[in-house]
């Protein structure tokens, strides 16, 4: 006798990812490693922002980088050229990082670090769904992409705590309103901290790195 049985589940489809993310966050809290997840469209300037950020932090902090680029080791090599440990995360072809991939890569790294930067796969949609256990999620928007991106990719902006508008040196030549981008992003996430930077000229880098240090101190007050 066959019968039909309905099972009420009511569980998040991201439960398995979020479970591992939580485990990572606990490990990072314990070791006082402040973790930053960088999300943007391809080419928005994640690696270049890291190249401008790491030298500032290196004098006072131990720093590591996880590189989520699918194609090549090129970004990891750019980071290693600064004398920073960079581990390539193998995504198996996916368009985003998931917590278990990060956990695997973290096992291969020196865990005695103060800052861990995760460069997510270049994509403004998919990475936004996956908690990696990070303390700070940063979305990057580059000037050439246009100021109307936030409403087109709301989840990335909604789930971030900071927005970095990159390639500010191109503001003079391009039709990009910082005010409009800021306003649109704040409509989606009123708590966003907004930075306008150029990795090329160094404009805005000090405010950005001070923010990172301040967030780390707030997260680990007795560090």
């Amino acid at each position: 006798m066959a019968e039909i049985r309905t099972v009420r589940v009511m569980e998040s489809l991201l439960k398995a990812n979020d479970y591992v993310a939580q485990r990572l966050r606990q490990a990072w809290d314990q070791g006082q490693t402040f973790v930053v997840n960088l999300i943007s469209a391809p080419g928005a300037g994640k690696t270049t922002l890291l190249e401008a950020t790491l030298p500032v932090l290196l004098s006072r902090y131990r720093v590591g980088v996880l590189e989520g680029d699918i194609e090549t080791e090129r970004d990891a090599e750019r980071i290693r050229a600064l004398g920073v440990e960079a581990v390539q995360v193998t995504t198996g072809g996916t368009c985003h990082l998931e917590a278990p991939m990060v956990e695997q890569a973290w096992r291969l790294m020196d865990n005695e670090i103060d800052f861990l930067f995760i460069e997510n796969v270049g994509n403004l949609v998919c990475p936004a769904s996956f908690d990696l256990g990070e303390h700070l999620r940063v979305v990057l928007l580059s000037v050439p992409e246009g100021d109307d991106k936030p409403a087109k990719y709301p989840k990335a902006f909604r789930t971030a705590q900071a927005l970095v508008i990159t390639k500010a040196d191109l503001l003079e030549t391009m039709d990009f309103s910082v005010e409009r981008a800021r306003r649109e992003a704040l409509e989606i996430q009123p708590e966003l901290q907004v930075f306008v930077v150029s990795a090329k000229t160094g404009v805005g880098i000090p405010a950005w790195t001070q923010f990172l240090e301040q967030r780390r101190r707030q997260t680990f007050p007795d560090a």
Binding site: E3, R5, T6, R8, V9, E11, S12, L14
Partner: peptide, 15 residues
């Protein structure tokens, strides 16, 4: 903002 598995309907044979 949810993304949920709500219900699963199964065919089971009790005996």
């Amino acid at each position: 903002e949810e993304l949920l598995l709500r219900d699963v309907e199964l065919e089971v044979e009790s005996d």
